[in-house]
């Protein structure tokens, strides 16, 4: 075996079966630039936000906005004296401006997190890192989302 192994674990949990809700519609409800700004200020407060240090990797052309791979990396030595405390990710046009907050520290070793997100349309994604000296650094990326040509509808 290589150093990586797979652990297949079963979890107990009261989860309803997925896929049983009839097809539904998303009403045109969107975060506004003001809501995005408020969401960011809720995290950052009045502190200045500098551009740099943060990188967001999203495929150049997203094949489906319902599941978009995203990796956020911050340039940091991740030492006790100089590390990333948190990473906050926001979007411009989903119904709600927040995507996720990640809390890490020197025991992370590397300031990089990856997840899969939903993006309702082509839009801007903003990632902000809070460093151990309480400075904030950000990057904004434009993401192009392919819309499905045929959607599943009831007819």
């Amino acid at each position: 075996m290589p150093t990586t192994r797979r652990q297949f674990l079963s979890l107990a949990g009261g989860v309803t079966a997925a896929g049983t809700i009839p097809i539904v519609t998303l009403r045109p409800l969107r975060a506004t630039p003001a809501m995005l700004n408020t969401a960011i200020r809720n995290v950052v407060g009045e502190a200045p936000i500098r551009t740099g240090k943060v990188k967001v990797d999203i495929p150049p052309l997203v094949e489906n906005g319902n599941t978009v791979p995203m990796t956020v990396t911050v340039a940091s030595p991740m030492t006790a004296d100089d590390h990333v405390k948190s990473i906050h990710v926001f979007n411009e046009k989903n119904p709600q401006p927040n995507i996720a907050n990640f809390y890490l520290g020197p025991s992370s070793g590397r300031a990089q997190v990856a997840t899969r997100i939903r993006l309702a349309d082509t839009q801007k994604v903003v990632a902000i890192a809070r460093l151990s000296d309480d400075t904030f650094w950000q990057v904004a990326v434009d993401v192009v989302v392919t819309l499905a040509a045929c959607t599943e509808e009831m007819n």
Partner: peptide, 17 residues
């Protein structure tokens, strides 16, 4: 991590230690 509705179904997370 705090997750919001913008996280896709069957949440995937990768991080380091």
């Amino acid at each position: 991590a705090d997750l919001f509705p913008a996280i896709a179904a069957n949440p995937y997370l990768s991080f380091f230690a």
